[in-house]
Nucleic acid binder design. Structure first.
Length: 574
RNA sequence: GCGCCGAUAGUGUAGUGGUUAUCACUAGGCGUUGCCAACGCCUAAACCCGGGUUCGAGUCCCGGUCGGCGCACCA
């Protein structure tokens, strides 16, 4: 066992040295909040994303789209990011500390600071004390600090653009196109994997809080009254630890319970949320997260966004950082579509046909346009409108236009009682949003894979990656770099590559050193060609974790390695 | 952003203001080696950046950058 306290240092040192993660533009001194994925890191991240794609695109059938990382200002005005994603801040002139201006106001007994204008707030807090050093602030400037990166589109800064703080907005604004693509019916889902940007005040904790990060989000558009997932049975009996709001408030431990039961008891708002909680658990286990380091925490009402009706975080336990929020699963209701419909003027609704057309009794008042039009001329439109809402008696109708009471005789309009058929209604779908921080998943995978054991009296460093995400999938070694062993090894390498397997050939140095090198980067299997190979056409396959070997006929190698990699069979069963 | 601490080959490190900057591992080459970091020979490789003090700075001072911790901030 290894001392878990310094795993972070050890795994980051290894990650840097072996080409998983590097500080960005290191020769110019790096920039906090940005990282480079090296050759092995990029490969591993790609495999992780592909597992994500397997779940959402293949299994769920939600197609992936790709929107720009820069969007025009209007998008973020509508989404609320321009307002809501910024804080009013000020700087204490005495200690230079940056402070939330509304927090300062609150500390001075002034409520509602967040809704004041900057000038008002500046005046309000002049008499307040600095929350850091306690001095009276005096006259300070209040300014907005927005977490979005701002840029200009085109020459002359004609148009303001922002780097997206989430991929979600691109999918919302494409709603009408998507609806058409999915042939006008609910539910449907769409996903996007890409970079998102947040100008964090203080990025720290390595890969945990980045200014540019990879976001994998799914937006599932559902009928507001039908939040039962059509494939709920897949995860209905799935059990996992839920840290509900109730448990958190009562200081209790998470409870392990099936999804079906959790929905039934009202702990989870609906089947959709429950389904994606379970799917997320399923996926995180597949990429190698240990179940005991996984829990799902429900947001308390106080921390939930005002529009979300239920929200959960998948949290992964890090020996360095504690419970880290890695995935957020929220029911965003109709907030986003309503906002974009309002601001853009494009209706974002779905026409839902009733099973049976509804017959509705309706009274229509049809004015005699030719007479009334001539009579009221410019007022005619207002008269028509007022008349259609009037309740006429036998003499006619009394209406009021611009404060003037008007009597319209019965012969100038017709009252028609009719039964009309309504075949359906326009509804604004609700959005279920699972949102994944890919970089945090990468870190969790690295941290949890890191291990040291003792082999032949020496410490062996090994990344115990799941075979599904290991960057290098198999290593091929000729025992000796001569006598034709190298040729056989190269042939096997090529045969593996033909099967789309990333195989690395290595003939340098002692065989033990080669095994260790691959152990350190988490390569799950190694094939060694020895002198017996020349006699009976067999090679050895070595398992990274147990260091055990079996002999296999060369012809079986590509297929065997494929099945070992995709988890169909385990080495221990061979 | 504030405060404290730190930064030396790819990695980890030693280094009283004074020769050519220490050591180990790693990496590359050659030899050796018949299954787990073996061995021999050889090679490559570093004082974060910018100022200042000094005859002389890896070392002292100031500023910056990056990293760690605490505070603050933060889906």
């Amino acid at each position: 066992m290894i001392d878990m306290n310094d795993v972070y240092e050890k795994v980051m040192e290894l990650a840097k040295r072996r080409g998983f993660i590097w500080p960005t533009s290191e020769c110019y001194g790096s920039v906090a909040g940005f990282i480079d994925y090296g050759p092995l890191g990029a490969m591993m991240k790609r495999r992780l994303e592909d597992i994500w794609r397997y779940f959402y695109v293949i299994q769920e059938g939600y197609y992936e789209i790709e929107c720009p990382t820069i969007a025009q200002e209007a998008v973020f005005i509508a989404s609320g990011h321009l307002k809501g994603f910024s804080d009013k801040m000020c700087q204490c002139p005495h200690c230079n500390e940056f402070l939330r201006a509304d927090h300062v106001a609150e500390g001075g007994g002034i409520a509602g600071g967040a809704t004041m204008s900057n000038e008002e707030l500046s005046a309000a807090i002049a008499s307040c004390k600095c929350l850091s050093c306690g001095e009276v602030l005096g006259k300070v400037e209040v300014f907005n600090f927005n977490l979005m990166f701002k840029t200009s589109i085109g020459p002359g800064s004609q148009r303001t653009g922002y780097l997206r703080p989430e991929t979600a907005q691109g999918m919302f604004v494409d709603f009408t196109r998507l609806l058409r693509f999915y042939r006008d019916h609910l539910p449907f889902g769409v996903v996007q994997i890409g970079k998102s940007y947040r100008n964090e005040i203080s990025p720290r904790q390595g890969m945990i809080r980045l200014r540019e990060f990879t976001h994998a989000e799914a937006e599932i558009f559902v009928h507001p009254d039908k939040k039962d997932h059509p494939n709920f049975s897949r995860y209905a009996n799935y059990k996992m630890p839920l840290f509900t709001a109730i448990q958190q408030e009562k200081n209790e431990q998470p409870i392990t319970i099936t999804m079906k039961e959790a929905v039934k008891q009202g702990l989870i708002a609906n089947e959709y949320i429950a389904y994606y909680l379970a799917l997320t658990h399923d996926m995180l286990v597949k990429i190698g997260i240990k179940t005991e380091r996984l829990r799902f925490r429900q947001h308390l009402c106080t921390e939930r966004a005002h529009y979300a009706s239920d929200c959960w975080d998948a949290e992964i336990y890090s020996s360095r950082f504690g419970w880290v929020e890695t995935v957020g699963i929220a029911d965003r209701t109709d907030y986003d579509l309503t906002a974009h419909a309002q601001h853009s003027g494009t209706p974002m609704t779905v026409f839902i046909q009733y099973e049976e057309p509804k017959k509705i009794q309706r009274r229509r008042i049809i004015p005699n346009m030719s007479v009334l039009g001539k009579q009221y001329r410019t007022k005619a439109k207002a008269v028509f409108d007022a008349l259609s809402n009037a309740t006429p008696d036998v003499d006619g109708a009394e209406i009021e236009v611009d404060g003037e009471k008007i009597h319209i005789p019965i012969n100038l309009f017709e009252v028609r009682d009719e039964v009309i058929e309504v075949r359906g209604e326009d509804i604004v779908p609700h959005v279920i949003e699972p949102s994944y921080g890919i970089d945090r998943m990468c870190y969790a995978v690295l941290e949890q894979a890191y291990d040291e054991d003792i082999a032949d009296g020496e410490t062996r460093t090994v990344l115990r990656f799941s075979p599904t995400i290991a960057p290098v999938q198999v290593a091929v070694f000729p025992l000796m770099n001569r006598d034709g062993l190298d040729t056989i090894a190269r042939d096997i390498t090529h045969a593996l590559q033909k099967q789309r397997i990333l195989a690395e050939y290595d003939d340098s140095g002692a065989i033990g050193r080669r095994y260790r090198r691959q152990d350190e980067i988490g390569t799950p299997f190694a094939i060694t060609i020895d002198y017996q190979t020349k006699e009976d056409h067999t090679v050895t396959v070595r398992d990274r974790d147990s260091m055990k070997q079996i002999r296999v006929n060369i012809d079986r190698i590509p297929e065997l390695i494929s099945t070992l990699l995709n988890g169909t069979i385990h080495f221990s069963s061979l």
